[in-house]
């Protein structure tokens, strides 16, 4: 695992030295400012508006980073051929891939944590106090982070066998489909044959169910998030993520570099 740690630390260092990341943090702070403004004109529901807007901003910004930087993790290295010298060291290809994944997840964790601090500051600015129930925001942020980690894994998988442009399209497509995976499982359409319904249901179980990671509505209204839901989402993310990374590793391990 030492090699994985080394690659991860370097991936994190790259992100830190990448100005785009700083711009996104700046953008997050700007969103927080907007949240405060909206909070001031939403009489009585400032808190839930700020929490909703803040969590949405954290999710959307994280999504952009996960997709765009996630796809570039491997494809950029292949394109610029920075990978050549590295793979000529005693490093397994799966170690490189896992290191890249961990490095970006580490970056997202720091970035998301910084934005969560911004959200709490915005909340404090409006309420001048923080309550115990505001702690659920952290749970929502944690679930967003799990979702982002899954997206990074998917972006990595697609970038292992297709062009960056298509990998972005596929990742974004899977994300959108995954948001509606729950609906697909329960859909009742009268004009579809049972075979089509079964196929649809089968596909819906293959898709990552991103809706399970969304507790923004509950948290915005100060409601508690059940521990079982958090545990289930964590287990789901770990298993699904491991399968996706294993597939990515299997493809990348046999890939000819140009």
């Amino acid at each position: 695992m030492k090699n994985v740690r080394t690659v991860a630390a370097n991936t994190f260092r790259e992100a830190v030295r990448d100005r785009v990341l700083y711009n996104l943090v700046f953008f997050a702070l700007l969103m927080m400012g907007a949240a405060i403004l909206v909070g001031q004109i939403s009489i009585g529901i400032e808190e839930s508006v700020i929490v909703s807007l803040g969590l949405t901003a954290i999710s959307v910004i994280g999504l952009f980073i996960a997709v765009f930087i996630g796809v570039g993790l491997v494809s950029k290295e292949m394109d610029k051929r920075t990978l050549y010298a590295l793979l000529a060291k005693p490093v397994e290809r799966w170690e490189f891939l896992l290191g890249k994944f961990c490095g970006l997840v580490m970056t997202l964790t720091v970035n998301t944590a910084a934005m969560a601090v911004g959200l709490y500051l915005a909340l404090w600015a409006v309420k001048h106090t923080l309550e115990k129930s505001d702690g659920w925001i952290l749970v929502a942020v944690y679930l967003i982070l799990l979702k982002l980690a899954l997206i990074v894994a998917l972006a990595l998988l697609f970038s292992c066998f297709t062009t960056p442009f298509l990998a972005i399209l596929f990742t974004a497509g899977i994300y959108v489909a995954g948001v509606f995976a729950g609906d697909l499982r329960t859909v009742q359409a009268v004009d579809l044959s049972p075979a089509t319904m079964n196929l649809l249901k089968g596909v819906s179980y293959l898709l990552p169910n991103f809706e399970d990671f969304n507790v923004m509505g509950a948290v915005a209204h100060g409601r508690a998030v059940p521990g079982a839901l958090v545990g289930q989402a964590t287990l789901y993310a770990v298993v699904y993520g491991a399968v996706v990374l294993a597939a990515a590793s299997a493809i990348f391990s046999r890939r000819n570099l140009k």
Binding site: N10, R13, E14, R17, D18, K80, R81, T82, Y84, A85, A88, K89, P90, V91
Partner: peptide
Amino acid sequence: HQETGYLPEQPYFYDYL
């Protein structure tokens, strides 16, 4: 690779380092 060194053709490395 522990006992091998390799210089790629027209090498390019992480330019932020």
